[in-house]
Design a protein around this nucleic acid. Structure first.
Lengths: 355, 355
DNA sequence: TTGTATGCGTTATCAG
DNA sequence: CTGATAACGCATACAA
């Protein structure tokens, strides 16, 4: 089969010419502030001010300067700026995993907020590893970032201190913690479990079960789930703890495992992204009617799961809201305004057809 | 339901103390090259050389310098370095969409390669928009990146020129094009279609159909599919063109649409990530046996789809290979070595149970 | 409101 | 192989 695949064809890439190119092209040397100053007939420092603190420059000169900036396409050299001021316009964002949309969605939302304000986002990956975390923080520290946003909470005291010593706005997120390094945007994983239990109880299910990870956030979700169930005088009928939660297949097998355990459940709270979809698919494949025979409730990022499997009911978090909030907190602080130290992001129930 | 959700609990975040902290902490002023030089009893420039061009410094002094660097935790200031040398250690990576694992997987792989060599990755998003592309490129240009990697091909001539004028290694990717700006890592979308057709033919299917996007790469995949089918004396039995390819639901509805079109097909090539899963689920839900009643063939990133739906057969690309190759090409060029101008990434067939 | 003098930390250049 | 000197482009501090 391979042999007839050797020659490859060229894909059609449309080549688009610009309409009226007003911008200078082919320029090898970037414009410097000095040239702008010369053309606007002011000193370099006035240009600098006109761009960073417009209020300090008279209406008239400012206008003239901005015109020249336009014409020349001047863009300040961020390295020179950072070197002199000791602070760059880079906001460092550390995601736990670049491959998980939960985190990239937050990063993206944060980027939108800060980029609108002339800051740039730099994404790094901590890979759930303390040592990677350390290296990432070290090299980013050298860049003198203006602020840091993390999709997680830093646990290692040494890494916490290193970040704190930067003396810049730091936003941790994703989970509550008693003493964040600086600011925090979180949702409660325990509440997620409670909300799931409340919902299943309200929908009239009597024998709820649980599928999820045994540690970390999964554990917390189970804790809230169990607690609220007992408040509603319902038993936790069964539970399956899984390690692998990366694929739909994991959800299917966990569901089968729950069945094999012999308990008689009428509903399941699947406390992790893909587990819910897997359980739904497996139940459907077995010919069970949903939600008449069994109710399935998932958990995860609202937008992700709604796109992936729009019929699934789920306890949802809006992770892009986390990123947006983080961005806004950072901006406030950089502008010298007050910013909340701790923000709580709402969980919500997204009603599909499975409960 | 909401009212009993107001109080939130603190999640258990383990706080970990470092064991034996040999590193200096609480240091507010970073060490400068001057101090290292003083302690090693050489001039600053020798320290600089010892770190960047060890060969130019004698074994003995180099050893002494590196010791001091270790002790002091010296890390060069990238801004000062970039300012003076006109080149930073940042590699700019532009992904079309941060939310698509296809691209982030490539970015991640590229990061692994370059970070091992002391470079840092900065991720930007072009969002499939020419103007976003322009802004992103402009602000990144200011950072004087060492190289650029794009998960796509730049079409707008003005943007192409801007990148070319940077005079640094540029890697485009994802599709073939006649004249890349500099280097290219691509796979052939037409070949993907050919490979799909060959596979279905070899497996004995007689009436293949197609589901995919009507434009861009989808079109190219259909082109190759049709061409190869006719070479094997098979008809294209039916085809459904969709715009939305973001969810499994889109795949399910496309499959129904194909059925409603009245044609009698025995297999489908779904030329986009989630369409294949959707078709597989829908066929299964209707009680059709796979692959006896109908064969389903997907297309996409190997690792993504294997994780999401391991049973689906698919024409796969290893997008992390694209990123890795790009990273290596960049490194070669930065080290003054020769690097290939164009690299072709293999497509492969991942055998699941659906064909 | 604007300008002058100076230095941020590094590396290119050239000399030894 | 090593060092002295200057310069990268901007923003702080202070003066006018």
């Amino acid at each position: 089969m391979a042999d007839d695949m050797t020659a490859h064809s060229f894909d059609d890439v449309v080549r688009i010419e610009e309409e009226t190119s007003s911008s200078q092209t082919g320029r090898s040397k970037p414009v410097r502030i000095e040239e702008v100053a010369r053309l606007a007939d002011v000193s370099p420092i006035t240009v600098s001010r006109a761009l960073r603190n417009p209020d300090l420059v008279s209406e008239k000169t400012r206008k003239r300067i901005l015109e020249v900036v336009q014409e020349t396409g001047y863009w300040s050299n961020p390295h020179a700026s950072a070197l002199r001021s000791g602070r760059s316009s880079i906001v460092a964002v550390f995601v736990s995993n670049l491959l998980s949309q939960q985190y990239t969605r937050a990063a993206q939302a944060c980027a939108q907020v800060i980029e609108a304000n002339g800051l740039q986002m730099m994404v790094g990956q901590t890979s759930y590893s303390y040592s990677r975390e350390l290296t990432a923080i070290q090299s980013l520290r050298a860049l003198r970032p203006a602020a840091v946003f993390l999709t997680g909470v830093i646990e290692l005291e040494e890494n916490r201190r290193m970040l704190r010593d930067l003396n810049i706005p730091i936003v941790e997120s994703w989970a509550h913690t008693r003493d964040p390094i600086d600011m925090l945007v979180a949702f409660s994983n325990v509440d997620a479990g409670r909300l799931a239990a409340t919902h299943l109880a309200n929908r009239g299910f009597k024998r709820p079960a649980f599928i999820g990870r045994g540690g970390g956030r999964g554990k917390l979700r189970l804790q809230g789930f169990t607690e609220r169930l007992s408040q509603r005088d319902l038993p936790l009928t069964g539970s399956v703890v899984v390690d692998q939660v990366e694929s739909i297949e994991n959800g299917r097998s966990a569901y089968r495992k729950l069945q094999e355990s012999g308990v008689s459940f009428d509903s399941v709270f699947c406390a992790n992204d893909l587990l819910g979809i897997g359980a739904m698919i497996e139940a459907g494949a077995q010919g069970q009617r949903i939600p008449e025979d069994v109710g399935i409730l998932g958990f995860g990022d609202r937008s992700d799961l709604a796109a992936l499997s729009p019929r699934l009911s789920l306890v949802g978090v809006d992770t892009s809201q986390i990123g947006r909030q983080a961005g806004e907190m950072i901006l406030s602080r950089l502008n010298g305004e007050e910013a909340p130290e701790r923000l709580c992001v709402d969980l919500s129930l997204l009603q599909g057809v499975t409960t």
